[in-house]
């Protein structure tokens, strides 16, 4: 089942809090993981597939790019939108992320408006609050 849940994957706890807060303001329910591997474990242990994952690039154990490649190989996650949120602003990395299956790319630092704008571009309307 797809819901208005969002998964925040970032090795920085502060960043997870900030992103989680911004997403909650947009009406999302959020869960979080500190690296790609933790995120996969979380996804596999839950019947609910988030409609969105915010993915950092540089993380220990499994980085953002490896996470994107891993989930894009599994058809059950094909509807999950992947937004890379990173301070990596090289065109080459952007292209690499998009080629691997990311839907969009947001460069840090960013405003809450820029995040909302990206979600809208990705076809994700502001989630309805319960």
């Amino acid at each position: 089942m797809t819901t208005t849940q969002a998964l925040v994957i970032d090795d920085s706890r502060a960043m997870r809090l900030i992103l989680g807060d911004l997403l909650q303001q947009l009406g999302y329910q959020t869960s979080e993981a500190g690296d790609g591997q933790q995120a996969i474990t979380l996804l596999e242990g839950d019947d609910t597939i988030p409609s969105l994952a915010l993915v950092d690039w540089n993380m220990p154990v499994m980085n953002g790019l490896e996470f994107i490649r891993a989930v894009r190989q599994k058809p059950c996650y094909s509807n999950m939108k992947l937004l890379v949120v990173t301070s990596e602003a090289e065109v080459g990395q952007m292209v690499e992320a998009l080629t691997a299956g990311a839907d969009e790319y947001l460069m840090k630092p960013f405003s809450s408006e820029a995040l909302a704008c990206k979600l809208e571009m990705m076809g994700l309307q502001r989630a309805q609050r319960a």
């Binding site: 065109v91 952007m94 292209v95 998009l98 969009e104 960013f110 405003s111 820029a114 990206k118």
Partner: peptide
């Protein structure tokens, strides 16, 4: 700047039509 690029511009267009 970064904030202007983040607002509304698809990443594909950023990579295709802009240079750092």
């Amino acid at each position: 700047g970064l904030n202007e690029m983040n607002r509304g511009l698809p990443a594909r267009n950023m990579a295709l039509y802009f240079e750092q």
